[in-house]
Design a protein around this nucleic acid. Sequence first.
DNA 1: TTTTAGCACTCTCGCATAAAGAGTGCTAAA
DNA 2: TTTAGCACTCTTTATGCGAGAGTGCTAAAA
Lengths: 343, 343
Amino acid sequence: MLDERKMKILSAIIDDYIATAEPIGSRTIARKYHIGISPATIRNEMADLEELGYLSQPHTSAGRIPSNKGYRFYVDFLMPSRKLDDYEQSIIKRLLKKRAKELEELIEEAGKVISKLTSYTAIILGPQLESSRLKHVQIIRLEEKKGLMIIVTNYSTVSHHIIEIPQNLTDSDLQRISNALNSSLAGKALEDITQDVMNSIKDDMIEYDNVLNFLLDLLMENLDDTKENNRVYASGSSKMLEFPEFRDVERARNFLSLMEKHDLIIRALKTSCKPNNITVTIGSENPWSEFQELSIVTTGFFVEDKNLGICGIIGPTRMEYSRVFSILEKVTDYLNKAISSLL
Amino acid sequence: MLDERKMKILSAIIDDYIATAEPIGSRTIARKYHIGISPATIRNEMADLEELGYLSQPHTSAGRIPSNKGYRFYVDFLMPSRKLDDYEQSIIKRLLKKRAKELEELIEEAGKVISKLTSYTAIILGPQLESSRLKHVQIIRLEEKKGLMIIVTNYSTVSHHIIEIPQNLTDSDLQRISNALNSSLAGKALEDITQDVMNSIKDDMIEYDNVLNFLLDLLMENLDDTKENNRVYASGSSKMLEFPEFRDVERARNFLSLMEKHDLIIRALKTSCKPNNITVTIGSENPWSEFQELSIVTTGFFVEDKNLGICGIIGPTRMEYSRVFSILEKVTDYLNKAISSLL
DNA sequence: TTTTAGCACTCTCGCATAAAGAGTGCTAAA
DNA sequence: TTTAGCACTCTTTATGCGAGAGTGCTAAAA
């Protein structure tokens, strides 16, 4: 563990580097942060901190910048906790006031708020509907052979699928089948609706034997679609180009094309996130090379204590962690409230 | 009008500039394109072309680059028409094979194909549902006071809205109201469903007088929502950073943040597009300053001769117009077919 | 009259050199 | 243990210079 003075110096260096993106020298520390020791002493301490792996030097005669280990120590022990200012408060509060009617809207809105307030890229994953319960399923006829299968969950998400209707079914058949499906499936968690459950329905409705297989298979398929609706809401990626980290076009391009690879993002966020806490993955802590120079901050959002999705922020490792934490915390807090008031 | 030789030279310069992004000198023209005259003569012609406004010079001792007027002339008169190669053909054909079940999917897919093949940003606007016909409307109860209103058009688009259901309505009331709405509204174009039409329904169903107003207002509102579903599908904007035009981060940032301003994009595309032709708006031909350095190529896509939306490409003014035209033409051609086979 | 060769001129780009500035590490004194 | 002093390193910025590319003009050739 570092002693008091080293921590003070490390903290000052990281704060300054986050603010300026320039390597920090001993003189700067002595001048700006009044620790009461001379640059020479600070230099010695800095050499120690470098040897311990918390700092590094871009070249011999430059100042120091934090290493990933340095950021990690900062986030875990040094980072000041921070209150939201009035502006941030008011923007976040509006989230709850918007009174969105559907979950997706709300989630998208939350993403926009996060990217607006932090200037980093907001990523939201979800809603993950495995643990949601089926509220309603209905088949409506549109044409002779074409129908609409509608699946509503208790989280107020609706998904619809255009399906083919077997020839010989009348409207009242469809209604009866819908009713039967509802009475046996409504209230069940999506993840619990397995092939077995489906089979037991078949036994109850032997009258429709010939067509039911077909419809149940369709329903199963559509439920799967609904479940794995792992949508990625990304917002504010163009703002990232304002950071000096992306002054190099090649880097900017890499970042932007990474943002278009939703599978990589989903994997990285899921790996990073422990839903109940706010977690940070700093640079090379992330196992995939695409994220080496980036940090990911994530936390889960919930409904009825079930993890519904992940709120995340992707930015350069030189990130204003303190600000990001405070904002992300508050936004998910409000998002949780907004979601439960939606149901 | 330009004489034969000037056109040859202008054409050579623009072709070369589109390929290399470097100013072209008289020697290059003489060497690469065998027009059979010496650099000195070409120089004279180039000076003329500059005076006429078709070319410009970045600085005194540089080669020439095309002006907007030059590009315009090129697109209107000089541009070679071009056949698609096998690769392009096969990618586009897959569009039709995909057999998407819904219009939105299809449109999104078309956007991806365009951006993949051109490397420019694809923008698709639509579907515009004003002229679509209502195929089905239904209200389903989800809870005591909560229901789902579903609107299906003859273009197979589905939109749903969670609504509040007046207390005193039974399920069979809902069904009866749904039926009544269907029989009086189904088959009508969305744009023809006006307040007057709604009022005449009220007359037919005086029994529900007290709640009907409320539901009809909701329906009206939701129909409006459905109509103005002016979604922007943008795809491939990160690829644009590969072009030397965006080697400057500031420009790249401007471009990317423009791509996030969907209202500006909608306005620009709508202004630019004459649905029945493929149209180009080059640089400052676009009235809004944000697009000064960009060109927009657009064309409409249709269903049953009704304009359903706009397919467009946004790229630097130094765009491979010939390639873009051929691809855009073919994609909308296939898109039109795919849409009509969807119905 | 049109085309071309020749040539002086202009401007950019790359490169080397130099000076300035920032910061370090080491040594020796406080 | 801390600090002042100093030599040293490395980057950044400015400057100058030559090479290269391209032009416009003039005068000769076709």
